[in-house]
C-alpha cells in the first residue's frame, strides 16, 4: 500500500451523504475467487438522492461490488440494498433497482416493440407512455431488431426503457463503453434532465472519469478490493488542493507532505495536498481544485507497478 492510500485508510471510508437514508450499506464486504480476492472487507455507504462514481483500476473489484449489490454473486460480510438482502430477495429488489451493464446486453434478436411490450408486461414500475416519448426522440423504428442497430442506438433503446422505470437505484456499469462522443454526452445529459431527482440514486462505474466528473455528487475510489477514498464532491474540493509551484519553492512545497508531485511546464511542479492549510498553500503558488482523474492517479500510484 502506498503512502497516499495509507493516509486514507485511518479515516472511515464512508461518504457522509448529508442526513439522507442510505440506499446501499456494506460492511466488511468480501468476495474470494479461487486464486484472488476481489473484495477485501470493503465498507461503504451510498446515500439516497446521490450520484456516486465508483472508480478503480481494472481488477480492483468494481464489477464484483456491483454484482454483489445486484444479487448476481454470493459474498461474505454485510450488505443491504434498500433494506433488502440481495442474495435472498433479488426478484423483489429488482422492482426498485435497475441496471445497465455495459453497452451490448440487449438480446440481439429482440425488436424495439417487443422489448417495450415485455418490460411493460413484467415490470410493475414501468411507464410505457414515458418510454414511448423517449423513443420518439430517437430514430429507432418499432419493428427494428437490436442486431440491426449501432451501439449508440442500442444504448438509446436501453436507456429509454430504464428511464421509464421508476426505480430508486440505478446501477450503471461502464454504460458508455465504445460509444462515440455524441452518444456519450447525450447519455449523461438525458440521465440528468429526464431521470435524476432527489428520490433516485445513481451508482456509476466507468473508465471515462472526465465525463462523469461534473455530474457526480459523491466519489468512491476502490483499490485491491478496499475502498481507498469515499467523499462527496464538495468535501473533496475542501479537502484536496493542487498547487502549481515554481522550482524555487519546491522544497517548501515538499515540506508540507504532498500526497503527489508531478512535473508541469517550465520546470514547475504540481503538488497535490490532502487537508493542508489553505493559507500556507496560497503562499506556494496558484491553488486549484484537483480533477478527479488527477486525484485518482495520485491515489492509485503503484497499482500496476
Amino acid at each position: 500500500m502506498n503512502v497516499a492510500a495509507e493516509a486514507f485508510a485511518e479515516r472511515p471510508a464512508i461518504s457522509p451523504a448529508a442526513g439522507s437514508e442510505s440506499v446501499v450499506h456494506a460492511r466488511a464486504l468480501t468476495k474470494r475467487y479461487k486464486n484472488t480476492v476481489a473484495l477485501d472487507g470493503a465498507d461503504f455507504e451510498v446515500g439516497s438522492g446521490r450520484i456516486v462514481g465508483l472508480i478503480g483500476p481494472n481488477g480492483a473489484g468494481k464489477t464484483t461490488a456491483l454484482k454483489a449489490i445486484l444479487g448476481l454473486t454470493d459474498f461474505e460480510g454485510d450488505l443491504s440494498v434498500l433494506g433488502m438482502d440481495p442474495r435472498r430477495q433479488r426478484p423483489q429488489l429488482m422492482r426498485d433497482v435497475c441496471f445497465i451493464a455495459d453497452v451490448a446486453t440487449l438480446p440481439r434478436w429482440i425488436r424495439v416493440n417487443e422489448a417495450v411490450d415485455f418490460v411493460a408486461g413484467v415490470h410493475p414500475r414501468f411507464d410505457r407512455a414515458k418510454c414511448e416519448r423517449f423513443l420518439a426522440r430517437t430514430k429507432l423504428q418499432a419493428n427494428q431488431r437490436v442486431r440491426e442497430m449501432s451501439k449508440g442506438m442500442i444504448v438509446q433503446l436501453h436507456l429509454a426503457i430504464v428511464m421509464a422505470i421508476d426505480a430508486r437505484l440505478l446501477v450503471l456499469d461502464e454504460p458508455t463503453l465504445g460509444l462515440d462522443i455524441l452518444y456519450r454526452k447525450q447519455f449523461y445529459q438525458s440521465l440528468l434532465e429526464d431521470y435524476f431527482d432527489e428520490n433516485k440514486t445513481i451508482l456509476i462505474t466507468t473508465h471515462q472519469v472526465e465525463e462523469v466528473e461534473h455530474i457526480l455528487t459523491d466519489l468512491m475510489f476502490i483499490r485491491d478490493g478496499k475502498i481507498a477514498l469515499a467523499t462527496t464532491m464538495d468535501e473533496m474540493g475542501a479537502r484536496f488542493a493542487e498547487v502549481l509551484v515554481n522550482p524555487d519553492q519546491a522544497e517548501a512545497a515538499r515540506a508540507l507532505n504532498p500526497i503527489d508531485e508531478r512535473a508541469a511546464v517550465f520546470g514547475k511542479s504540481i503538488f497535490l495536498y490532502n487537508s493542508a492549510d489553505p493559507e500556507q498553500l496560497a503562499r506556494l503558488g496558484e491553488v486549484k481544485r484537483p480533477s478527479v482523474s488527477d486525484l485518482f492517479v495520485a491515489i492509485m500510484k503503484g497499482t500496476y507497478a
Binding site: 445486484l70 435497475c98 451493464a101 455495459d102 451490448a104 446486453t105 440487449l106 438480446p107 440481439r108 413484467v122
Partner: peptide, 17 residues
C-alpha cells in the same frame, strides 16, 4: 446462449425470479 451473448444481464435486471 444468453450467458454467452451477455443478454442474461438484461434479463436479470428485471424483477423476474
Amino acid at each position: 446462449e444468453d450467458r454467452k451473448d451477455r443478454s442474461i444481464l438484461f434479463w436479470k435486471s428485471l424483477p423476474i425470479s
